[in-house]
Simulated scan of single mutants.
Amino acid sequence: MGGTENSPDRSDDFTGLRAIFLNCTLKRSPELSHTSGLIDLSAGLMRDKGVDVEVVRPIDHPVATGVYPDMTEHGWEEDAWPALFEKIDRADILVIAGPIWLGDNSSVTKRIIERLYAMSGMTNPQGQYIYYGKVGGALISGNEDGIKHCAMNILYSLQHIGVTIPPAADAGWIGEAGPGPSYLDEGSGGPENDFTTRNTAFMTWNLMHLARMLKQAGGIPARGNVPGEWSKEGTSGLDPNPEYR
Rank of each mutant, 00 (worst) to 15 (best):
A91S: 15
G103S: 12
L84P: 14
R245K: 13
D185I: 12
A19D: 03
G228S: 11
G237W: 08
S231R: 07
M122I: 10
P181H: 06
Q216L: 11
D48C: 04
M46R: 00
P227R: 06
G189P: 13
A201S: 05
P240S: 13
L158H: 03
F202A: 04
P181L: 15
G187V: 11
H34A: 10
T109P: 06
P221T: 01
G66T: 02
V63F: 09
S36R: 00
G234Y: 09
G172P: 02
R198S: 07
N6T: 15
R18I: 00
R111E: 12
L155W: 05
R212S: 09
G142H: 09
E229Y: 05
N143E: 00
M1F: 08
A211N: 03
I100F: 12
R18D: 04
A91Q: 03
I59C: 11
V163M: 07
E31W: 07
S33L: 11
M1R: 07
A83Q: 13
E114N: 14
A222P: 10
G162C: 07
T196W: 02
L214M: 12
G172H: 02
F21I: 01
N241V: 13
R111Y: 06
T204M: 03
G66Y: 07
L17K: 01
T72P: 03
G75K: 02
G3V: 14
T204L: 04
E78L: 08
L45I: 09
H160N: 14
S182M: 15
A168Q: 14
M203D: 04
H61R: 14
G103T: 13
Y183H: 03
R115C: 10
A201Q: 07
P62W: 05
P240E: 05
F85L: 03
N23V: 14
I220R: 00
G127F: 08
W205P: 00
L184N: 09
I20R: 00
G66R: 06
E86L: 01
I39Q: 00
K87W: 04
T4P: 10
L158C: 10
L84I: 10
G136D: 03
G137S: 04
G37T: 02
V226Y: 05
D9Q: 06
R47M: 12
E86M: 02
G121F: 12
G237M: 15
T200H: 01
S7K: 12
